[in-house]
Design a protein around this nucleic acid. Structure first.
Length: 381
RNA sequence: GCGCAGGUGGCGGAGUGGUCAAUCGCAUCAGACUGUAAAUCUGACGCCUACGGGCUACGCAGGUUCGAAUCCUGCCCUGCGCA
């Protein structure tokens, strides 16, 4: 059960300022969503995550089903109580794992094609299957990369698991299609995703908000068709998933084709996109929420995002640097710690290094988006 | 002093006659990362290079051999044991 209200529509772009009300409180949109795949922002306590001003978290059906199992979360009283997180939550359906453990793994790529120049030498043709995942009309057979155990996830299974996990917002089970998939592949895959979307709606018993996911890769007509089909169903909001083209322009185009076809009254979530340089671009197209692993993931690799760009704390010259991570940041880490110490921790592989950078990066991303909201409010964006 | 073990690239440590500029790990350097198989992965890592290759190297100095990090002799050094 959610309520979404739009406070302001930009005159300069398709950006909108809104409030998303959930059983666990309100979210000011546009909002960054922290990725807590395994019911945690890796390296941080939930109370610390609150202090990064993260408003909303997304966890993962596939991972929590494998361990500890959704029953554990159900018995714990739902994911909020389980992880002592007081604010709103989402769960992804496992649709991304169809890709990441399937073609993504085979091809050695992520969902953003341009990140892997020259790597996608093999097109994914219709009727081909990935090596470690089997996609059928009813759902997907996975083999856990950790245990090797086989499991099946389809629309009904995903919804059943997500209901037990108990997030405020859940997603329809879809196939996140790989970059390099041919048009015939996308046609077949999208049809299946649409069928699954309808099944997810039928399967839902809870009062959780359910978002349908638009696919269609970088093909304009397929994206538009998918948007129309998903929009016609009784979803509470929308996810935009899959391959978003080979450049920022591609991403802008896909959103430009898709979002105007979706009901204005319902929130739109862009799945898995959000480098700093993407944020204004996607918000200007009318995205309300978006999640991205980048701030947390890069933090554990020793990279901080700052007002001056990325800073790699593995570089030895930072051992002599007595400045904070970002002089313009007022997060707890920037107030209390200097670069030389963090560089030492990162280089010595001390977990505290990753934790401090995770805190800063999340704070920085949230502050960045808060500033974008401010710009919309002031009519600057 | 005697006995035993050993001295290999920044470090640890393989190799014990040719396929060795020398497995591997660490460190170092560079790159990647967008609904997290991810505190991960990839590459470089003696010197020079017109990228074909060339040069110097396995404690030091000699020797044996077509050929030595690998065998022999002497020396130096380290650890352990016994005096």
């Amino acid at each position: 059960m959610i309520e979404f209200s739009i406070l302001k529509r930009s005159k300069k772009s398709k950006a909108r300022l809104g409030i998303l009300k959930t059983p666990h409180g309100e979210v000011e949109t546009p909002a960054f969503v922290g990725v807590a795949t395994n019911a945690t922002i890796k390296a941080l306590r939930s109370d610390e995550v609150v202090r990064t001003n993260t408003q909303l978290l997304i966890s993962n059906t596939y991972h929590l089903h494998i361990a500890p199992g959704e029953q554990v979360l159900e018995k714990a009283g739902g994911i909020n109580k389980f992880m002592d997180w007081p604010r709103p939550t989402m769960t992804d359906s496992g649709g991304f794992q169809v890709f990441s453990l399937g073609f993504g793994r085979d091809l050695g790529v992520g969902k953003v094609a341009k990140s892997f120049p020259g790597k996608i030498e093999r097109l994914v043709e219709k009727n081909t299957q990935p090596n470690h995942v089997k996609i059928t009309d009813d759902g997907v057979f996975f083999r856990s990369p950790l245990s090797g155990k086989e499991m099946f996830l389809g629309p009904k299974e995903s919804i059943g698991i997500q209901e037990k996990i108990g997030a405020d917002i859940i997603f329809a089970f879809d196939e996140c299609t790989p970059p390099g998939a041919t048009r015939p592949y996308i046609v077949t895959s999208s049809e299946r995703t649409h069928r699954w979307a309808a099944e997810c709606l039928r399967a839902r018993r809870s009062k959780q908000a359910l978002y349908g996911i638009v696919q269609g890769s970088h093909f304009k007509d397929l994206r538009q068709e998918s948007a129309r089909i998903i929009n016609a169903m009784d979803f509470d909001g929308f996810g935009i998933g899959g391959d978003l083209g080979e450049s920022k322009i591609g991403t802008r185009d896909v959103l430009g084709w898709t979002l105007p076809l979706l009901s204005e009254k319902k929130p739109r979530h862009l799945l898995g996109i959000g480098h700093i340089e993407d944020i204004e671009l996607i918000i200007k197209q009318g995205v309300d929420t978006f999640d991205c692993t980048v701030p947390t993931h890069y933090a554990r690799r020793g990279v901080a995002f700052t007002s001056e760009g990325r800073v790699d704390f593995m570089k030895s010259n930072l051992l002599d640097d007595k400045d904070p991570i970002d002089a313009k940041c007022d997060c707890l880490v920037c107030k209390n710690y200097r670069r030389n110490y963090i560089a030492h921790l990162v280089r010595a592989q001390e977990i505290t290094g990753g934790a401090l950078l995770t805190f800063h990066n999340l704070y920085f991303f949230n502050a960045y988006v808060a500033n974008v909201r401010e710009k919309i409010k002031k009519g600057k964006l």
